[in-house]
Design a protein around this nucleic acid. Structure first.
Length: 323
DNA sequence: AACGCACTCAACCGCTGAATA
DNA sequence: ATATTCAGCGGTTGAGTGCGT
């Protein structure tokens, strides 16, 4: 079943918008609104543009109170931590940054912030031992986890001070401290999307608050997944170490080798603990991601069921992975 | 000055899910 | 229940720009 094009491509202008087009679009929307139909809008205005193009131009550029560039440190923190927490859901991230558009944030992340953070990490690695080649996730996307997953894993560990592998699990004070904004987002997402079997961890995680009246310093923005006590108790402790070893420092961690262990991992007690359905989901996730990796697909791997599901399964996956 | 490379960002493309016929 | 339409979203592209040689 094909889908009808949203506009007549032959009669539609593409490329950069002229000031005249901008003025027409802006004046019309400010006066009449969008009318709830972007497709019909360009015809009404007399613009030879696709409705989608008009919508994008309005949302990303013409809309009032749009900020461009000049991201602050606080915004950097929020973007980084939300990316690590929820992945590339730019619209959700943008919703927390007034005046910022998803497109702007996405560009900023891809061109600057990611490099800034991963760059720090590489520098940190070379300072530490000098023998870690630090394979960047985007160097070879066909091998290993998806770019997004690897980046998030790397950033997550970096930002958690992974240099002391046991510090997180052995120090409850390192457990989740959510900024109220993030707590709200996570709770909202939880209520709407997160499968029940994953909720307990996260809900527990969200219960830890910043001390009242204490302003966030930035560090508090980081969301730390709380380890599943069942896993801690029943998996003989080995996962504690494995979960903090950097993926790119593991010996030859590639798609096949890594994912081949999912069956073994799925049998861990801690996964039995959370119920059959979750186990199935985990296996499903592993299989689907395996396919995604093998195909080298650039499609959004966080997806098909629920981004959050994948996200938290991924975290559990880290816990359960046995080196 | 000219060239090539890297980077930025506006815009496009294609997919998904919700709404509706 | 199915098909269709559309808004919204995330990934990708390519023109423009800056910088080094």
């Amino acid at each position: 079943m094909g889908r009808a094009p949203c506009c007549d491509k032959a009669n539609v202008k593409k490329g950069p918008w002229s000031p005249e087009e901008d003025a027409k679009l802006k004046a019309y929307i400010e006066h009449y609104g969008t009318g709830g139909n972007w497709i019909a809008l360009p015809q009404k205005i007399g613009l030879k543009r696709c409705g989608k193009s008009c919508r994008l131009r309005w949302l990303n550029y013409l809309r009032p109170n749009i900020k461009h560039g000049g991201f602050s440190e606080e915004e950097d923190n929020i973007i980084s931590n939300l990316y690590i927490s929820i992945g590339s859901r730019w619209s959700v991230i943008a919703a927390q940054l007034p005046g910022r558009t998803d497109n702007d944030i996405k560009n900023y992340w891809n061109t600057r912030l990611k490099k800034k953070l991963l760059g720090k990490r590489k520098q940190s690695n070379s300072n530490n031992n000098g023998n870690s080649p630090s394979t960047s996730s985007n160097e070879d996307p066909k091998e290993g986890l998806s770019n997004s997953a690897l980046e998030r894993l790397q950033l997550h560990m970096q930002l958690q001070g992974f240099q002391n592998p046991l510090s997180f699990y052995t120090h409850p004070q390192l457990w989740p401290k959510l900024h109220p904004v993030q707590e709200k987002i996570v709770q909202t997402l939880l209520n709407n999307q997160t499968p029940n079997f994953l909720s307990p961890n996260l809900q527990a995680a969200t219960t830890t608050q910043l001390p009242e009246g204490q302003p966030p310093t930035g560090e508090e923005f980081f969301i730390h997944p709380k380890p599943n006590p069942a896993c801690l108790d029943q998996a003989s402790g080995h996962h504690q170490v494995s979960s903090f070893i950097e993926v790119d420092e593991l010996p030859d961690v590639k798609a096949d080798g890594f994912m081949a262990q999912t069956g073994q991992m799925a049998e861990f007690d801690c996964f039995k603990e959370v119920g059959g359905s979750s186990k199935d989901s985990l296996i499903w996730w592993a299989q689907n991601n395996d396919q995604d990796m093998r195909s080298g697909s650039s499609s959004n791997s966080w997806d098909s069921t629920s981004v959050l599901q994948s996200e938290w399964v991924f975290q559990d996956f880290e816990l359960g992975y046995n080196l």
